[in-house]
Design a binder for these strands. Structure first.
Lengths: 352, 352
DNA sequence: GCCTATAGATGGAACGTTCCAATAAATCAA
DNA sequence: TTGATTTATTGGAACGTTCCATCTATAGGC
């Protein structure tokens, strides 16, 4: 069985009657070793209950095969889906990514990044916390550790970003709403200190502009990017004199909140008020009514981010192209039946 | 600014005009250093853009301050809540836990554990994947690395477990259902290879037994522990000749699925069919109708697990007491109005 | 002035790996 | 046979830290 003190490469060497160098070679799968020797060594490894000490190895190698994934909100299932995509490609490369949560807190993010750096990560995939200061990643950059941002970017940074085409996503969603006959539109959730917010809101506004929705008929309500935030947004919007009849939501969580709030008022998403989400998380399809949402191919973005990271590490560069992922609107039930079925009076909702 | 090759403790020593030992002492916050010297060294550390090499340190120290958190399903918001609790206490201890996802796959779990061990973790908090083989953790145990299981346990293992009182939770929930006048009861979701399932189902059955629900009136439908799984469960249950009028669900995800499936049939959770969930995730409160669920104090369990882990590391033991957390039923709307309001005919649901 | 404490700083030997240069053994060319 | 080449294996010097034992001042006691 295993000995008390942890076994090292030398213990294996002694056990197998070879030198430590030979053991090291076997561990690395070198072809220079005679097959019988390799077998003998591998048996010894098994016998002594050896566990590889990557820290010691990295001391020599400076090539660490650990990748850190820093996420701002583990609670959002969106990030879980993103993580799944990444893990798929990292797994194939024999890498285990370590996930750390910053809970949208820049101070915590600082700690997390420090710890990851001390651990000697080969690269970092980050969705930065809100309120991250511009210089937060400079240390890491000058240390030459590759970083890629996902979903969010920092206002002025040169760090590559993998994100969906937020502007276009919002644009086509808004277009859809207008095509359904809606004339008083809202944009719900998010806050203006996020670049993503600017982009999505931008797409919304541009669609309003090109399809001639007057400024007076556009309602913009900022709010938390959660169910609760969505509920609040709806309440404030409906309190207005001329409330909107449809809303594009910052993300799906907000959209779910809006639908819940509607039900609470005895209204039904789809027939009484149109709502479209953003991200198309798995849940959207199974909701009742099923949520129309902008699909961003979350797992695909995760895969992409992982690939870019791998490439950066391999070519030991800290630069890479941004990647803006294609988006598409997946139409379900939350915007109601087609225009014909609803008739011209669609805008006059039940509460009016 | 920072130099090209990464700075070491010797660079700092040179910069500050002291010895490497002094720098090391400063890094560890030793009181043996004259304050002015410490200041000088700290300035040098800043100047050269030094990043601590924990791998090298661990080589000497064998005391790693990294804790791994191995989770079987990152997609379940429940685990995010658990993680939040743990992080609270680890953060206070100056530790950053690394989270890794096994996606309910024992093979992946094996890889993840191996990687974590190679990284030299000080301890492991694990929610084991389904189908984990009995010996999966023996290597780690003999290596002397403390492990704590959360939520799930392995059938025969001696590893300490932090989990809610599943049996009692299911018991009181079932009691509640019966108290509401329901006589044909179902247990939805989960599968019998999970110990948790046995416990929750056990509580359900015991309540049925003591409150005299005949075996013929108990429906048990296994299924995925997800929304989709819940939907399927409801469908199969309602297809029976004498369908149940109430269900205890394996967890909240299943419960949400059941409610969705009800709506799809034009039925309403609460008035037409009673459903109670398990775990009481944050979402339960905001659902429509709000979900009655067994609260397990998720974050509290997380904190507890973290504390136990810290204690084990500190006292360098691999043993600890199990902790079975108290549970409580939080009654909301998904089981309908009180018995009186519903009248005696409660059992005769709309579809009968 | 001398001896002893004490505070502060230091050199060197680990820790467990990798990698290079060197060796030994076996094969081949002449 | 000798020398060159190939194939397997090996010792030793790093890598960046910690920690122990040692050293040097300075201060205090007499």
């Amino acid at each position: 069985m295993a000995s008390r003190a942890k076994a090292t490469i030398l213990d294996i060497a002694r056990e197998a009657g070879v030198s430590k160098s030979t053991v090291s070679l076997v561990l690395q799968g070198s072809g220079l070793i005679r097959p019988e020797t390799a077998v003998k060594v591998r048996k010894a490894i098994e016998d002594v209950g050896y566990v590889y000490n990557r820290g010691a190895a990295n001391l020599r190698k400076a090539h660490s095969n650990v990748i850190g994934m820093v996420i701002n909100d583990l609670t959002n299932p969106f990030f879980a889906e993103l993580a799944v995509g990444m893990e798929r490609v990292f797994q194939a490369a024999g890498i285990v990514p370590f996930i750390a949560n910053t809970a949208e807190n820049p101070v915590r993010q600082e700690e997390v990044l420090k710890s990851l750096m001390e651990q000697g990560v080969a690269g970092l995939i980050v969705s930065p916390a809100r309120g991250t200061t511009p210089g937060a990643f400079r240390r890491i950059e000058t240390a030459g550790v590759p970083i890629v941002f996902t979903m969010r970017r920092l206002p002025e940074s040169r760090i590559p970003v993998i994100a969906p085409d937020n502007h276009r996503g919002a644009f086509i969603a808004t277009e859809h709403l207008i095509g359904k006959g809606h004339r008083r539109l809202a944009f719900f959730g998010g806050s203006s200190d996020l670049v993503v917010y600017q982009q999505r809101l931008g797409g919304f506004l541009e669609a309003c502009e090109t399809l001639a929705i007057p400024v007076a008929d556009r309602t913009i309500v900022e709010g938390e990017t959660s169910r609760k935030g969505g509920m609040t947004c709806l309440e404030t919007a409906l309190a207005a004199a001329e409330p909107p009849t449809a809303a594009l939501c910052f993300n799906d969580a907000v959209a779910f909140g809006v639908m819940l709030a509607l039900r609470k008022r005895g209204l039904e998403a789809g027939t009484d008020f149109a709502v479209v989400g953003f991200d198309d998380v798995a849940e959207a399809e199974h909701y009742m009514p099923a949520l129309t949402s902008v699909a961003v191919d979350t797992a695909g973005l995760g895969e992409r981010a992982a690939h870019v990271m791998l490439k950066m590490i391999q070519s030991r560069t800290t630069r890479a192209e941004d990647h803006i992922g294609a988006v598409s609107l997946v139409v379900r039930e939350s915007c109601g039946p087609s225009r014909n079925a609803r008739g011209a009076g669609a805008g006059d909702a039940a509460w009016a």
